[in-house]
Amino acid sequence: MPTQIAKQWSQAPAYAPAVSIPMQPFVATVLLLIGFLLTALFSIIDKKGVVGLGKQIAIAIPASISLGFGFVYLLCAVGVFV
């Protein structure tokens, strides 16, 4: 006789990823491209004064997020599901 948890488990819907599996290589490519372009921009901006620090932060945060998600999608695209 199955328990209540086993019943709920068998009736639960199947997991569906936010980005479909065929789209993951494309999403990884786009995110990594954006991240690398922002990283290149970060290396050539003016780094003097408070305004320079604001520019650095404004470019570094999106670059970091884009590269992070890009690498996760790259791993998922090649079959290493994290």
Score class of each variant (00 low, 15 high):
41 L>I: 10
8 Q>S: 10
82 V>T: 14
35 G>R: 05
36 F>K: 00
15 Y>I: 08
27 V>Y: 01
19 V>H: 00
11 Q>H: 10
11 Q>E: 15
57 I>T: 13
33 L>V: 14
42 F>A: 09
49 G>D: 04
40 A>S: 13
17 P>E: 05
71 F>Y: 09
34 I>W: 05
54 G>Y: 15
57 I>S: 11
42 F>H: 12
79 G>L: 10
69 F>D: 04
51 V>T: 14
45 I>Q: 15
73 Y>H: 13
42 F>V: 05
77 A>E: 04
48 K>L: 09
38 L>G: 08
34 I>G: 04
34 I>K: 03
51 V>I: 13
1 M>K: 00
41 L>R: 09
43 S>I: 07
69 F>E: 09
45 I>S: 07
72 V>M: 05
12 A>C: 03
14 A>G: 10
55 K>N: 12
54 G>A: 15
28 A>V: 02
30 V>Y: 00
4 Q>M: 10
12 A>K: 10
43 S>P: 00
76 C>H: 14
73 Y>V: 06
38 L>P: 04
56 Q>G: 15
40 A>F: 14
22 P>M: 01
50 V>E: 13
5 I>N: 01
50 V>D: 11
1 M>E: 10
57 I>C: 05
77 A>P: 06
1 M>H: 03
28 A>F: 02
31 L>A: 02
62 P>L: 11
52 G>S: 09
73 Y>N: 11
79 G>M: 06
49 G>T: 04
15 Y>K: 03
77 A>C: 04
40 A>R: 12
44 I>D: 07
41 L>T: 09
74 L>E: 07
12 A>L: 08
21 I>C: 00
10 S>R: 10
72 V>R: 02
59 I>W: 05
35 G>F: 06
45 I>C: 03
38 L>Q: 12
11 Q>N: 14
60 A>T: 03
20 S>H: 02
49 G>Q: 03
77 A>K: 03
41 L>H: 08
61 I>K: 06
57 I>M: 14
61 I>E: 12
8 Q>D: 12
79 G>P: 12
38 L>M: 14
1 M>A: 11
64 S>M: 13
4 Q>N: 04
46 D>C: 06
27 V>E: 00
48 K>F: 03
5 I>G: 00
7 K>S: 11
27 V>N: 00
37 L>H: 03
80 V>G: 01
2 P>D: 12
4 Q>G: 00
41 L>W: 10
65 I>A: 08
15 Y>H: 13
63 A>C: 06
59 I>E: 08
66 S>Q: 06
12 A>Y: 07
53 L>N: 14
7 K>G: 02
82 V>M: 15
76 C>Y: 13
74 L>H: 01
13 P>S: 10
13 P>Q: 08
62 P>W: 07
28 A>C: 03
67 L>N: 09
26 F>S: 03
40 A>G: 14
68 G>D: 02
62 P>F: 10
20 S>W: 03
39 T>D: 01
50 V>I: 13
29 T>W: 01
49 G>A: 06
76 C>T: 08
12 A>Q: 09
11 Q>C: 05
17 P>L: 02
68 G>L: 12
13 P>E: 09
64 S>N: 04
6 A>N: 07
35 G>Q: 01
74 L>G: 03
2 P>H: 04
9 W>G: 01
36 F>H: 02
52 G>L: 11
18 A>D: 02
62 P>V: 12
70 G>V: 08
18 A>R: 01
56 Q>L: 15
24 Q>K: 04
20 S>A: 11
33 L>F: 13
44 I>S: 11
78 V>S: 05
